[in-house]
Computed example of a mutant assay.
Amino acid sequence: MTCKFNKIGIIGKPNDLSITVPVTCLIHLLESLNCIAMLDEGTARSLSINDIPCYSREQMGQSCDLLIIIGGDGTLLDAARSMSDYEIPMAGINLGRLGFLVDISPDKMERTVTEILNGEYIDESRMLLEANISVDNTNIFSAKALNDMVIHKINVARMIEFDIYINEKFVYTQRSDGLIISTPTGSTAYSLSGGGPILHPSLAAIALVPICPHTLTNRPIAIGADSEIEIRFNKGNFEGIQISCDGQVNRQITEDQTLRIRVCEKTLTLLHPTDYDYYHILRTKLNWATQNYE
């Protein structure tokens, strides 16, 4: 069989020995298909795998033409951020709980991975967000997120006050526990728990979802993906404010800093099985009611 992809990177959930067997089986499958398996060095280290070559994320980004993620959605979120500059398509094998992003079941791994390598898949483009913190117009911190960016207090149950500007136009002043800025991908995560809308992945939109706003009329709003969001904080509320990217990367913000968030220029390509159905995933994961019309 002539494979569409030749060099396959493998990234697994860190410090989880339960992925040892799936990782090993995947490597053997790829080798049987005459593909080159490139195991992430962090994954190899956490599983104590020493008998096959392992590679840094940078080496994988420069060489791989496909990445296979083994774990849960959190594992794919981490991989998406670290590998986004290389624009390598990703497929995910679900060993976690929800599995909105990693949608290949372990019992169908061999068949589905073989189909993907043979060019039988559904591809889907997902946007990422980029946050930049600057002082006097000098950027001092940048981070990306596939799901969301959350502004909140650190370890203190107090409201914060801030002004929101979109494309340099004032929107409103908000007093709340924080703000969720979500992509369509993240609209089924923390944003959904906060009362935000579900955005189809094909929409070029960003959702701004207040966390427990003081004014009940301060509702979620969806804006265009070409928007730049600027957050200006009330200086009396600065102690202990941070931005959290996908719940995995955190950075404290001080009063002399400016926070701007926009959509990344580069996107993530997800590869799904040929029977992928977004609405079926919503019904299954969110336990929506169904009616049998047969």
Rank of each mutant, 00 (worst) to 15 (best):
N118T: 00
L101T: 00
S46H: 15
S18H: 14
G61P: 06
I104D: 06
I211Q: 10
P197W: 02
G236D: 12
E239V: 00
I231S: 04
C3I: 01
P213D: 09
L98Y: 08
V150L: 12
Q242F: 11
M159P: 04
I241W: 09
L77N: 07
S187I: 02
L67F: 13
D78F: 00
Y276C: 00
T112S: 05
L26W: 04
I223R: 06
T24G: 11
R97C: 00
Q242H: 12
L271E: 05
L216R: 05
S244W: 01
I151M: 10
T173L: 00
R262S: 14
F141W: 14
I241G: 03
L98A: 01
M159S: 04
L199P: 03
T112W: 02
C264I: 10
K266I: 10
I261T: 04
K144G: 04
D246N: 05
Q252E: 11
T185Q: 14
D123A: 06
L17F: 11
N50H: 15
Y165G: 07
I11N: 13
L117H: 06
N155C: 06
N234T: 07
C3E: 11
I243T: 04
K13Y: 10
V209N: 06
I180C: 06
M83S: 02
I253P: 07
S56H: 15
D148G: 08
C212W: 13
I133P: 03
G92Y: 02
Y293N: 11
E230K: 15
P53D: 12
E87V: 10
H28F: 07
A145G: 12
I181C: 01
K153F: 07
A189K: 04
L117Q: 00
F5Y: 15
Q291T: 13
E168C: 09
I166T: 10
Y172C: 01
P106S: 08
D123C: 02
S56Y: 15
Y121L: 06
Q252G: 00
H152P: 01
Y86W: 15
A79L: 00
R219M: 13
T20R: 14
G12R: 01
Q257F: 05
I253M: 12
M149Y: 07
